[in-house]
Design a protein around this nucleic acid. Structure first.
Length: 407
DNA sequence: ATTCCACAGGAAACAGTGGTCC
DNA sequence: GGACCACTGTTTCCTGTGGAAT
């Protein structure tokens, strides 16, 4: 191997090291203390919890805000400090954190809570199994565990709106009601984190009044705040003068337009830095932010389509081939394609549902149009590039022949 | 004013799967 | 081993919708 080649490899490696000095600062979920600029909200949560501790009574909280507004990060940070302070006062606090979107059924939420409380490790009987128990039995086992050990518990339920939407508020009702029985020996505090302000309307009035004791709204970050957040991260993550002011401003502007999503801003910066590294460029400017934006969009769409079910993929093909884009026509084409690959078509009702799911994911756009005498339908059109669709279907053996219709 | 179209979308039920309990 | 439970994906049934046609 020639000296030149070796020199080249090591020079590039050094360049890479010079570009980013702390990768952790560019991961979305890593939120360093005091770097999310939510002093007011942090104070309110901390004060509410202090009151709970002083009075040894529950003090439920609801946090609202669009994705990427720092709700989860703030609450995790406050709870961490709260736990430390309580421990120094000799009070043990048990905290469970469950994301109701990931644990997407009521039972899974209970199971996650039980796991976080280590019920299955600490108990030899009355464990909360992965499945097989009724909701009531699982709830009772958790409550018995709390009662027996006189615990002070904080349940944090992230994306709580998703839990209520799908499963109603039974769990929340049981926990808020159970509290009345445990007040003498401990308390259960519920902290709900939600993306939707209107989800409260779906709650039982008793749950609502109890859960909404304190509500905190996280307004979307303004562009200027996003710039501040990015500048702090850049200072810690990159070497000096690697990221231009223009790049930071563009990142903030793009994320600012998208509901003030700080997560998106940081993600853009991370991907831009990866592209710059790959291209062996030592400075990140606006051009790389644009490239990152395109890459993120393309990658997301590609992954969604690739991991979709066969029927969803056929629906996407049918939409691309539909002239008018109305539901009837799409369904007709879809059925034809199904038969061509020996697949029994699903019902139109289910296809309507799939189209609406695709709409929510941003892969297609659909608008309801009323054509009077000619009925009411949707105008559906595909929003991702045909090439992305083709790429993501390429490796699916079922689509070997069907994919040719995209040419 | 009424009818009618072509659906949208909610609710309930069902089938199949994978688990626990007694 | 049968009763029971939860979950997912789906079907079936049904009501609602808004504007052109009559």
């Amino acid at each position: 191997m020639s000296d030149d080649l070796l020199n080249n490899i090591f020079d590039n490696a050094v360049k890479g090291i010079q570009l980013i000095k702390n990768r952790k600062m560019l991961t979305i979920d890593y939120v360093p203390d005091k770097l999310f600029f939510r002093e007011e909200e942090t104070t309110t949560i901390a004060q509410t919890l202090s009151v709970a501790l002083k009075g040894s009574r529950p003090s439920n909280l609801l946090l609202f805000g669009k994705p990427g507004t720092g709700k989860t990060a703030v609450v995790k940070n406050v709870i961490k400090k709260f736990k430390e302070k309580s421990a120094s006062l000799g009070i043990e606090i048990t905290v469970t954190f469950v994301n109701a979107k990931l644990a997407n059924t009521a039972y899974k939420v209970l199971y996650e809570i039980a796991e976080e409380m280590s019920i299955n490790k600490l108990e030899t009987r009355n464990q909360v199994y992965f499945t097989g128990l009724s909701l009531g039995e699982a709830t009772n086992r958790i409550l018995d565990f709390i009662k027996k050990r006189k615990l002070h518990v904080i349940f944090i339920i992230d994306e709580i709106d998703s839990l209520v939407d799908k499963n109603g508020d039974d769990i929340l009702y049981n926990f808020t009601r159970a509290n009345e029985q445990f007040l003498d020996s401990g308390f259960i505090t519920l902290i709900g984190v939600s993306n939707s302000l209107t989800f409260k309307d779906k709650l039982d009035p008793r749950v609502r009044s109890s859960l909404s004791e304190e509500e905190i709204v996280f307004n979307p970050y303004k562009i200027i705040q996003l710039q501040k957040i990015l500048k702090e991260r850049v200072k810690l993550a990159f070497c000096e003068n690697v990221v231009t002011d223009g790049a930071i401003n563009l990142c903030a502007a793009i994320a600012g337009k998208d509901n003030g999503d700080a997560r998106k801003a940081i993600d853009l910066l991370r991907v831009a830095s990866e592209i710059a590294e790959r291209d062996k460029v030592s400075q990140i400017d606006e051009k790389f932010i644009r490239l990152a934006q395109n890459k993120i969009e393309k990658d997301t769409n590609f992954e969604i389509v690739k991991n979709s079910t066969t029927h969803t993929k056929i629906v996407l093909l049918a939409i691309t081939k539909s002239k008018n884009g109305n539901t009837g026509e799409v369904y007709e084409i879809y059925s034809k394609y199904c038969k061509s690959i020996d697949n029994e078509p699903l019902t139109q009702r289910r296809i309507t549902q799939i189209i609406s799911e695709l709409d929510q994911l941003g892969l297609v756009s659909s608008n309801i149009v009323n054509q009077g005498r000619y009925g009411r339908s949707q105008k559906i059109r595909i929003t991702i590039p045909i090439n992305t669709l083709k790429e993501s279907l390429k490796d699916d053996p079922l689509f070997v022949t069907l994919i040719n219709i995209l040419d």
